[in-house]
């Protein structure tokens, strides 16, 4: 690092504070989930895995978990083609109203989630698909789509466009050039985007709150409903499931594309 000793001290002090802030809720939840007592308290009353074993007996938890998995998979599967094609279209083709389309495709970020959720609740109600599970997955895809386009755009911009010209020169027709040259080239972006889409859908709360009912409730919404009543350690065990999945996703992302990718300047 450039600079004096005082710089290191000041910056690292803030960063250690950041690290504490970032990790504290996670660590506390993990700690609370192993209590053998019946309430969340400190220090935890003994060590046990009883809340985890109880989790597997809870049908509510299991079905909410499976529903969450289902909507996250739909979200990811829809977003992969939609986001990838859009990113390639924006980066590789001459598009009129390029900026307008770009702003339009950022709408899911600029429209507040509460408005997106309500709007889709009303619209899905009008076309009579509200109350089913798959529209929830579609909705989660829509609100997070810019993440997918973003991830692939970064990869397309990093890919030499002469590669596609070379493929065409060598006689590859459009589809072949796309599937054997462009797509493998942007794969790191597609993987990053797909992982982001999955994990965001798995955690999404507000839009799901509007689009689900008692029969279709997903895990984040059911955790929210439980927090409002009474805080018991089984909730901590459910939350640990989230922490474990997040951890797996981080490791996967690091292994497949490398987290350092996010530090690259554009």
């Amino acid at each position: 690092m450039i600079g004096s000793r005082s710089k290191g001290v000041v910056l690292w002090t803030i960063v250690w504070f950041d690290l504490l802030l970032l990790s504290l809720p996670t660590l506390i939840i993990i700690g609370a989930s192993f209590t053998s007592g019946d309430i969340v308290q400190f220090p935890p009353e003994g060590f046990s895995l009883k809340w985890y074993s109880k989790l597997w007996l809870l049908d509510d938890f299991k079905s909410a978990f499976l529903r969450t998995l289902y909507v996250s998979i739909i979200c990811t599967l829809v977003s992969i083609p939609a986001g990838t094609l859009a990113a390639i279209g924006l980066a590789r083709y001459r598009i009129r109203f390029h900026t307008t389309i770009q702003v339009y495709l950022l709408l899911p970020f600029t429209i507040p989630l509460v408005a997106s959720g309500l709007g889709m609740m009303i619209f899905f109600g009008e076309i009579r698909i509200l109350g089913q599970l798959w529209p929830v997955g579609l909705a989660l895809c829509i609100i997070n789509l810019p993440f997918m386009i973003w991830a692939v755009s970064a990869a397309v911009n990093g890919l030499d466009d002469q590669l596609e010209n070379a493929a065409a020169n060598c006689g590859a027709p459009p589809l072949q050039a796309f599937f054997t040259v462009t797509l493998p080239g942007v794969m790191p972006g597609v993987i990053t985007g797909a992982l982001l889409m999955f994990i965001l859908a798995f955690n999404e709360f507000l839009v799901s709150l509007f689009l689900t009912d008692a029969r279709t409730v997903t895990l984040p919404v059911s955790i929210y409903n439980s927090i409002r009543s009474v805080i018991t350690p089984d909730l901590a065990a459910v939350s640990v499931v989230y922490i474990v999945i997040a951890f797996i996703a981080v490791l996967l992302l690091d292994k497949l594309v490398g987290l350092e990718l996010f530090l690259k300047s554009k």
């Binding site: 970032l22 955690n203 909730l235």
Partner: peptide
């Protein structure tokens, strides 16, 4: 890691 853990779980923490 926290980025991939949603708002509800973190608020619970």
């Amino acid at each position: 890691l926290p980025f991939f853990i949603g708002q509800i779980v973190r608020a619970y923490g």
